[in-house]
Computed example of a mutant assay.
Amino acid sequence: MSVRLDWLSTRPWCLGVSVAIATCVISWFVQLVILGVIVPEWSDGNGLIPGQDVSGFHRVAAAQAELIALHGWSAWELRPNGWGISGLMSAWYVITVPAPWSLVPLQAAMYGTCVAVIYGMLLELGLQRRLAAIALLPALLLPSGAMIYAQPHRDVVVFFGLMLAIQGWWWLACIQRINNGWAAARLAVSGSALVFIGFILSWIVRAFSGEIFQGLAGLVIIVLVVFALAACMKYRRLSCYTLASPLLVLLVLIAMNQFHSGGHFSRYLDEVDTAPRTDTDMADLIELEGWLPTSWLPSAIDDRLRRYPVLGNISFRVTAMVEPLSTRISIIATLPIC
């Protein structure tokens, strides 16, 4: 056992690849054997747990993949039915197979990358390789972890994006302790790119995660400024590399803020349907029974309400009352004051 742990802990990528392979096998076993053969009554017929968000994610993704196959990529939407994970899944279904098991290798790769990043961080903090590997065993052995990687859920994408961002912030922080211009430039470019890519991926599947990333970036800036002041007091001088580290994090934070507040998600919602709706039109638009996406609620609340199918009619009636009222208010606000 110790020899195996020593082999796995030689490099972070070794542990990440091993975890990715293990999660891939476990996910296929859960979807195809346990839910497909042993207890099919617990499955929705696609290897997914019925009554959960994952079942709806798959149905919407499969429907959009069929539209793309019929009409081309012009039919693709980023967030069909308000679900970014369904948009990503539909694109994957088009190039592979429209079944949840085809998404397993991609999810396993993301999960393995997350474990590799955490393992690398533990090594950087001075933890022994074997102890760091043992500390990460619960990520693979605990059954609750299978809810993240064994089902096509958006949490694994948010987890992956967050780990990319943490790795990027770590590389930007490492600029403070080097004195080589080319090395600093490589860390600056790669670190900034990882942070922004992780932010985009998480924002696609959970729009409100943009605020979380910006808050974490603010904390990172504070920590790096404290480190810069401590180095200045210790060495009685302030290096340009020490200043560049928090400045780069600040610039990436500004970019994230501009992207998140630039109306990208609002424009998508506006393009869905801006014409007045009737009962017949709304009945044709409903793809899934449940709470319909609205533009007058925060995305976090609106997303949680979609889990309750009985709220479908309530969503339509409340939206029918609120949206005309908001339209009248906006018209009155634009009238000239006499």
Rank of each mutant, 00 (worst) to 15 (best):
I175P: 04
P98E: 01
A69H: 05
L238W: 09
S330W: 03
G112N: 06
E271Q: 15
G36V: 07
V158C: 05
A244N: 05
Y235V: 10
L106R: 04
L229M: 13
E323L: 13
D281G: 13
L15Y: 05
H58F: 10
P309N: 06
T327H: 14
T242Q: 10
S55H: 01
S144F: 13
A139T: 07
L172G: 08
S326F: 10
L216W: 00
F159E: 12
M256G: 00
L229F: 14
R154M: 15
W76R: 01
R304D: 12
R11I: 12
A173Q: 11
R237Q: 11
I175Y: 07
I134W: 13
L123K: 00
D284W: 08
V195Y: 07
L48N: 04
I175L: 04
A185E: 08
T319H: 06
R79H: 12
S55F: 02
M321Y: 03
G161Y: 00
L35H: 00
I148T: 12
R130Y: 08
G82E: 01
L250H: 02
L292R: 05
D281E: 13
M163D: 02
R177G: 10
L106K: 00
A109Y: 02
Y119Q: 00
F208Y: 07
L305R: 00
L325K: 02
I331S: 09
W73L: 09
F160Y: 09
L297E: 07
D53I: 12
L238F: 12
I204V: 14
L15I: 10
L247D: 07
P12Q: 00
L78S: 05
W42T: 08
K234M: 14
V25D: 08
Y119D: 02
H264I: 14
G16E: 04
G45A: 03
D273M: 11
R328A: 15
G56Q: 07
Y111L: 09
V117M: 05
G87E: 01
V97F: 11
W42M: 11
L201I: 11
E287L: 15
M233W: 14
F199H: 00
G36H: 06
G210W: 04
D155H: 05
P80V: 07
L187K: 00
I301C: 06
V25H: 02
C174R: 04
L243R: 01
E77G: 07
C174D: 10
E41V: 12
M321D: 12
V252R: 01
L224H: 03
M147E: 11
Y308V: 15
I337Y: 09
P105L: 08
L224F: 06
D273S: 14
V189N: 03
V272T: 10
M121L: 11
A173P: 04
R267N: 14
A244E: 04
L162H: 02
F213C: 10
E287S: 13
N257A: 15
G47Q: 00
I85Y: 02
P336Y: 04
V30I: 14
S9G: 14
M89Y: 02
L201N: 02
S102N: 08
F259T: 12
I148P: 04
G218S: 06
A109W: 01
M121P: 03
R267L: 13
V195L: 06
M321V: 14
L292V: 15
I337T: 15
W203G: 03
T274E: 13
V117H: 01
L164D: 03
S261R: 07
T327Q: 13
G198F: 01
W13T: 11
A146Q: 10
G82Q: 02
L137F: 06
F227P: 07
